[in-house]
Amino acid sequence: MAEAVIARARLRPFLAGNPFPHGWTEGLFYREKMRAIHRIAPPSLGPDDRVLEIGGGRSGLAAMLYPGADVTTLDLDPQYAANQPAGARNRFVCGDARALPFADEHFTVVTLFDVLEHILEHEQAAAEALRVTRPGGFVLVSTPAADWHYPMYGWLRRHAPHERELMDEWGHVRRGYTVEELTKLFGAAPVASASFINAATAFYHDVAFSRLGRRSRTLLYAAAAPLVLGAYALHGNRTKGTEIALAWRK
């Protein structure tokens, strides 16, 4: 008898777990990120495979992506231990991405979702992620592209914080990466990739993080909805995006 497998969550229920309210307007950027991650993630795991989400204290994305899997969430901040996704096989470990407290080749999937751009010593974090991934396993990464800017639409600048202010608030130590930079960082080309937040959907992202009042934001969302939601629906893997998701196989 074949061993049971743990399937990747179906796309619709996975996207329903978007932690941002108003997932079709202010939270659309995160929905786009989740869809890109879903596209590059392995479709199934074995019953004994283990998943590690590095820097996932707030998100719980790995546990939502593989419901029922053995998922460990690691974060530097111990406060996130109290708000992890429910599940008998989910656990939290307080630790540093640059010195993971796990044995070599311990996990089948290791994730770095919007993490590398926050770590000055990103070479150490990438090397550690590869060290704890078993042969044949996957490292999944999402990150801003190296050439993203906020806001994308210049007329919003007078209503928006400077991007340096946002990067400091978000804890970025670098803007982002090119695929070539990440290929060098992980020592190989990715086996799968997807982009997200394109030129049209970036408008909702710009408005969401602006200083505009709720009424003004709502009116702008409504006015731009046909273009933005159409661009979301048509976004494919070859569409240029301001952020990227990639998978490496060890």
Results as ranks from 00 to 15, higher is better:
10 R>H: 14
11 L>S: 11
18 N>K: 00
18 N>T: 03
27 G>T: 04
31 R>K: 14
33 K>H: 13
34 M>F: 03
35 R>N: 08
35 R>A: 10
35 R>H: 11
38 H>S: 06
41 A>V: 02
42 P>Y: 03
49 D>W: 13
53 E>C: 09
53 E>Y: 11
56 G>Q: 04
61 L>H: 03
62 A>W: 06
63 A>G: 01
67 P>G: 09
78 P>K: 01
78 P>R: 02
79 Q>M: 08
80 Y>T: 01
81 A>P: 00
90 N>K: 07
98 R>C: 12
102 F>L: 09
105 E>T: 12
108 T>D: 08
114 D>F: 07
118 H>R: 04
122 H>R: 10
129 A>W: 04
132 V>G: 01
135 P>G: 10
138 F>G: 12
139 V>D: 03
145 A>K: 10
146 A>Y: 09
149 H>T: 15
152 M>P: 00
153 Y>A: 11
153 Y>W: 13
154 G>Y: 05
161 P>S: 12
168 D>Q: 15
173 V>C: 11
174 R>G: 07
179 V>L: 11
188 A>V: 12
189 A>E: 15
192 A>F: 11
193 S>K: 13
193 S>N: 09
201 T>P: 10
202 A>T: 12
204 Y>G: 06
205 H>S: 10
209 F>K: 09
212 L>W: 08
212 L>Q: 03
212 L>F: 12
213 G>N: 09
214 R>Y: 14
220 L>I: 13
220 L>P: 08
221 Y>M: 06
226 P>E: 08
231 A>Q: 02
232 Y>P: 12
236 G>D: 14
245 A>C: 15
248 W>P: 05
248 W>S: 10
